[in-house]
Amino acid sequence: MRGVPEQDVQAPWASTTAPLRRESSEDDSRPAWTPTAPVRLPEVDGPDVSGAVRVPRPGGAPETAARSAGPVGPDPAFSWSAPTAPGAAPRATRPVIRFARPEGYRDLPRPRRSRTVAAAACVVLGLGLIGGAVTGSWLVGDTADAGERGAYATAGGLWHNVPVDQLFPPTVDGQGAGPGGADRTWTRIAVAPDGGCADAFDPLLLKTLAPVGCTRLLRATYTDATQSYVTTVGLLFTKADAAGMRALDARFAKEALAARTDLIPRPYAAEDTVAAAFGDQQRASWTISVLTDAPVVVYAVSGWADGRTVATPQPAAQATASGATTSPAQGGLGHEAKGLADRIERALRRTAVSPSEQPS
């Protein structure tokens, strides 16, 4: 270049490519400086006026090096993989980083408080539902007593809501109902007109049944397959509620009224049938059952079809007992009365549950 000595001209890349080192001389007694640890650059406000970066020297005097053409990379001394100085504790020069709590941390709901609030809400909701259910049951009368009254009302109306063939089937199958578990089959031969109770019971039995009243009395007479026996079965529909029927049943059990020979139901003797001669003197065995789940008294009375008289009638419970030797017991008349009454009672219960269901 013109006006500048040639020896003073330096290549523009000399300052960026020359290594940073201290030239030693023979007259210099100080040893050559070789860094043993990463050099941390001092914090500076910015580059000096010459555009160079200050690099500390061993004696503390800065040495200026020209800025490289490219951007300055991160200081390797701050790397996690940078070696530690000899004798220093491991990772003594590693940066320690702590993260602060996020904003609003103290305002976040605590889990324990949330669970407590949720549990309290569930309790309040549950109590509200229970209270609503109880209140609703009071308003609509949905109680056990109401259900019982409904069942009694349904059963009490069967005498005019259900066909006679459903209450008194034309044929009744009595498997195992005879003496020794023998099968029985009964065939209906007559159905009495429905009416009151005045002529159906002896005066003393009528008085005993008076507390429950008499709404309607239905009767039918059956005979066995051999036509040797005749049996009248009756359904007395009372006016009593559940408490009244329970009271009557308790009295029958306490006083053994079903075993008294002066409380025998009367038979229904239909003309022009094998039961035409079935009168009061022909009654041989009987049974009376007071239902507590329906306003009904079920009974049956049996006798011989040939019209023979019976001097000492015997209740079915005794005539079917093992070892019984009376005439009704030996003839199986106790099984006739009890077996037929039980099956008519079962049909009645099925019909009370589902009035449209035909009994089997």
Rank of each mutant, 00 (worst) to 15 (best):
A14M: 15
V353D: 10
R94H: 15
A18E: 02
E148H: 13
G244Y: 04
A253N: 08
A253M: 06
T351Y: 02
V233K: 05
L218G: 03
L129Y: 04
A347M: 11
V191L: 11
A311T: 09
T16K: 10
A240M: 05
T238L: 14
G196K: 03
A119R: 15
G60F: 08
Q166Y: 13
I97P: 09
C122A: 07
V191C: 13
T231M: 02
S289I: 15
G307S: 00
L248K: 05
A305S: 12
P179R: 03
P102Q: 13
R260L: 12
Q281I: 10
A65Y: 05
K254H: 00
V230W: 02
V4C: 14
A18G: 08
Q318G: 11
Q227L: 14
P19W: 00
L340C: 15
S15M: 13
V124F: 01
L218E: 14
P265G: 03
S114Y: 04
W33L: 01
D45V: 13
L108E: 07
L236R: 12
L20D: 10
G332L: 07
D241H: 09
V9Y: 03
G279R: 06
H335D: 02
V301K: 06
A88Q: 14
T351G: 03
G339I: 09
A225D: 05
G307T: 00
R149D: 05
D28N: 01
G104F: 05
F237R: 05
T221K: 01
G131D: 00
A341K: 10
H160G: 06
D194Y: 13
K338D: 08
R113G: 15
A276L: 01
W304H: 04
K239L: 15
L333F: 11
T154N: 04
G156R: 00
R115Y: 01
Q314P: 07
P5G: 12
S137M: 07
W304F: 14
V9F: 08
A259D: 14
A155F: 09
A276P: 00
L218H: 07
L167P: 00
R101H: 15
A182W: 01
R106N: 14
L127M: 01
A276S: 01
P95F: 12
F99W: 09
D306E: 00
P47G: 05
T34Q: 09
D241F: 08
G334C: 00
P35Y: 02
